[in-house]
């Protein structure tokens, strides 16, 4: 199982702060595509808009392989400071 977190506008568009996913050993892109198929708002937030991904709190690209037990986070480009 993997835990998925959403932050900022991504969280607001999707409507939930987190969810769980049973399948593991898939790439970030595969997960992004599977989640994007859940509805128009998911597709818009995760695929259409600029959306970054961190695995275990480290920024990764779409080819990164997600393992069982990983913490995955999706969020927009950052705007702190």
């Amino acid at each position: 199982m993997i835990k998925i977190l959403f932050f900022g506008q991504t969280r607001e568009l999707i409507g939930v702060p987190s969810c769980e996913f049973q399948q593991s050993s898939l790439t970030v892109l595969e997960l992004r595509d599977l989640l994007s198929a859940r509805g128009d708002n998911w597709y818009y937030a995760l695929t259409e808009k600029s959306c970054l991904c961190a695995v275990n709190q480290i920024l990764v690209d779409d080819t990164h392989l997600i393992d069982n037990g990983d913490e995955v986070a999706f969020f927009p480009p950052v705007t702190g400071g």
């Binding site: 607001e12 600029s50 969020f75 927009p76 480009p77 950052v78 400071g81």
Partner: peptide, 21 residues
Amino acid sequence: KNDVPLWKKEKTLYEESWVEA
């Protein structure tokens, strides 16, 4: 400004909107 996972939402008298990078 570029790397730390923080996000700003701006509130004016009329609306709220997320700040773009």
